[in-house]
Write a protein that binds this DNA or RNA. Structure first.
Lengths: 124, 124
DNA sequence: TTTAGTGTATTATACGAATAATACACTTGA
DNA sequence: TCAAGTGTATTATTCGTATAATACACTAAA
């Protein structure tokens, strides 16, 4: 029952997916913190950690004492936030290392294509 | 006196740089574990951790009870190992996330260029 | 064969991240 | 106004990683 990613990240992703695939729509309530905690057999605080991220991303909105609700344009917001963070955080780190090792984006793309499309010389 | 990276990684990088810049040459002794530990004011085990990585990468070679020595083609090996790991580990993770967020390598390159070469519209 | 150098194994400590236990506080409707 | 729902704050536990303390073991040369 262990996992690659922390539980709160999985909860975050789970909700994002629900929103992006249209299972949860603008204005609807999100599952309550406690409900989700019971279903996933985890602590409410762990759910809260995910919900805090989701709220920060503008995907859900809180109404004190009532619950969380799916925000306006939640899907776009979720995507926009994640894209922004990717560009601001992941990309520079990756690029720096890439250059230090003498690769270019073009090199990497070639390698990537080569892997996904093995050609004739790859025989057993 | 804190730092971004763990000490053992910094030691690893330090030695790699020495080797790649030709300050340490094939067959020469590497600084002894204890000597380095004293100079850096750290524990011998922390140096060992770096040296274990270096040995695994084929940059240095151990002679029991005697010390570590710069390996044959150490510079190339160091680079080759790091490039290989980058391709095998960093690249797939990065690529997967990139695609999930709807970016291509070409997109990223554009963004990167845009950042490093700001044009006229960027005024104060 | 002893000594001074070397690396190495074992065990302990420090610290941060993830998660949980538990108690608290807000909102709404009967 | 109180009960049953909601989120939230505080504190504790667990666990892995980095690092250190310390004792052990190999090698070479005097």
């Amino acid at each position: 029952m262990s996992a690659e990613q922390p539980i709160y990240v999985r909860v975050f992703d789970h909700i994002c997916i629900q929103v992006m695939s249209g299972n949860f729509n603008e204005g609807e309530r999100a599952p309550s913190v406690r409900e989700l905690a019971v279903n996933w057999e985890i602590n409410p605080n762990t759910v809260m950690r995910a919900y805090a991220l989701l709220a920060e991303s503008g995907v859900i909105v809180n109404r004190r004492g009532v619950g969380f609700f799916i925000a306006r344009d939640a899907a776009q917001k979720a995507l926009a936030k994640q894209r922004h963070e990717f560009i601001a955080a992941d990309l520079p780190r990756f690029t720096q290392k890439m250059r230090a090792l003498g690769f270019s984006f073009a090199d990497l793309e070639k390698r990537h294509l080569a892997k996904s499309k093995p050609h004739k010389t790859t025989k057993k």
